[in-house]
Design a protein around this nucleic acid. Structure first.
Lengths: 335, 335
DNA sequence: GTGAAAGCGCTAACAC
DNA sequence: GTGTTAGCGCTTTCAC
């Protein structure tokens, strides 16, 4: 119900004070007598004045907005992270701009350039880049950035990630202990740090458990819908007796696929899944497979915290936060 | 790799032209000779100039940003919509700001006020308000708004929704035709238009099919995680022989619950579900129940289109778009 | 305890 | 075909 464009000087005029006083009153940025305050607020109310956020950002250089560059919004892992981040930010008076890259490197690049050009105060990036230099190139020097879920060798930016090595290593050991000889693994996009770390853990554990390493048992999906099936078909022709799936969407797909093939989890084949979040399907099958649950909420919370901290203090040392996943063995007993 | 604050006048100076020329060159907004263009672009490159989006928005009044007020981001129905909307917008040079209300009316109100105060050019709202006046109050007059998925009696704003009446009506008729006598229904939040329409369809169909209406068979969840179980427990004590679930998240929960109770779909009990999207679980059970699939992508696409159209032409007549769901009967034959 | 006024970086009349 | 310049609405320094 605001009439067209009420500005701070309209308010000042009506209240019989200067624009400085109005500004200081609404921002509580210097002492204003109670009497004057009352006049100002009265005028604001009468005119239905709302300060223009755009003019304010322009003037102060602060946008009160964070950008989040995500590879796949409709993936519940990221959707939940977005939710947590948004919660944290809005509690601190910040807004969230979303950019979806669909795991496309040039979309990521474009979005970084767009957002850093005066749109946001800081950037959260779950990067799909294979090349750190290309990422780095797109970010203006000194711009507050926190990498999320995916990181790089070069430790130039703060990051908030999940430990990838340990749960996979443990999975292999457990499966080997149960007698598996041919353990297949389905990773995500090969270029991502998370994938690399997981596959490295697999290789190391295979060696440590004295199993034979067969490159045919290592497959890569793209962590988007319908990317696991192809891997599964190939793995099954390789007579593998256990499968580790490194990502939640592909894990659900795996369960469905195996189910349709008439294979029973824990009997015809052993399964270990990153579940990412409490997917529907995992509730039905969680006691028939080992589940690696990532701390999505904690990840989002930490991401929100870190980016705001960096904006506060851009010269703070690089911060690497590594959260750990929960490992729940198939018997349903442990945690 | 930008050094601190390169402005348009730095570029103008280096290129030996006026700021107007630089502006017109980069915006292609009036004729500039090739020679001058070259000088300008050369200078831009040399200085690493990026126009400040914030200053530009301030000056032009256009933010190139749309706000989307969503009740629950981590609900895949909305996550998918966000993705589709974002795709559409970014293809037209717009950004997307997300605000999550968690089905909380005052969060919605606050966010509307925040976003409309100079942050966005237009607003997409999947409203959780029960009271149209309260919504309307928060929106500045003439501000471009499109209501999404949920609407109101008062046709003041354009909307993009899904037909709610027809699929529920059809569900009841089909179940009655198969011999069901006591059909339970689980709706979403009672205050939402979508819920009201669906429950109205249920009542009407029950009457038309000459079944007995029992208010105990009408239950309401809140469409968030773990909200259906309570309804289910109550419905089962009422000896209902079929259940209609009006929302995807609750539908998945229902399948899991019934499964855990050892009840077989289509045998011990009939089920009709809004599936919202291709949830994991529906892939396993879709042939054992009737599925109502909402056109989420089309909804998002239409929402994106409509809001941009409204921004282009704010005085266009109110536009109500109603999309239809796909009804897939349990035998797997129809569509 | 409050006011005057200088810009922030850009666009767009208006002028030539 | 290009330049001059007046602001957009706000914050903030400097003055009193």
């Amino acid at each position: 119900m605001v009439s067209l464009k009420v500005t701070i000087s309209d308010v000042a005029k009506l209240a019989g004070v200067s624009t400085a006083t109005v500004s200081h009153t609404i921002n509580e940025t210097r002492y204003v007598s109670q009497e004057t305050k009352d006049k100002v607020y009265q005028a604001i109310k009468e005119l239905g004045y709302t300060p223009d956020a755009s003019a304010r950002s322009f003037r102060t250089g602060k946008k009160q907005t964070i950008g989040f560059i995500v590879p796949d919004i409709s993936n519940k892992f990221f959707a939940t992270m977005i939710e947590t981040v948004e919660n944290h930010l809005s509690a601190h008076g910040y807004h969230l701009i979303i950019a979806n890259t669909e795991e496309n490197m040039s979309r990521e690049e474009t979005n970084i350039r767009l957002l850093t050009a005066g749109l946001v105060d800081g950037l959260l990036i779950a990067s799909t880049m294979d090349d750190f230099a290309r990422l780095d190139e797109a970010i203006p020097t000194g711009f507050p950035v926190v990498l999320v879920d995916r990181t790089f060798e070069e430790k130039k930016y703060s990051s908030v990630c999940v430990s990838n090595f340990q749960p996979i290593y443990r999975s292999v050991c457990r499966l080997a202990g149960k007698g598996s000889k041919r353990i297949g693994i389905i990773g995500g996009l090969p270029r991502l740090s998370s994938t690399k770390e997981r596959i490295a853990a697999y290789r190391e554990a295979i060696a440590d458990c004295d199993l034979e390493l067969d490159e045919n048992l290592i497959r890569y999906g793209d962590s988007r819908e319908n990317s696991a099936q192809h891997c599964l078909e190939e793995l099954l022709t390789q007579n593998c007796d256990a499968i580790i799936v490194c990502q939640g969407l592909m894990a659900s797909e795996t369960i469905i696929y195996l189910h349709k093939q008439g294979m029973r989890l824990g009997q015809d084949i052993d399964l270990v899944s990153f579940v990412d979040y409490d997917s529907d399907i995992n509730q039905l099958y969680s006691n028939q497979m080992d589940c690696i649950t990532q701390p999505v909420e904690a990840l989002g919370e930490a991401a929100g915290e870190q980016i705001l901290a960096r904006i506060e203090n851009p010269d703070a040392p690089i911060f690497e936060k590594v959260l750990t996943s929960t490992y729940k063995p198939s018997d349903g007993a442990g945690r």
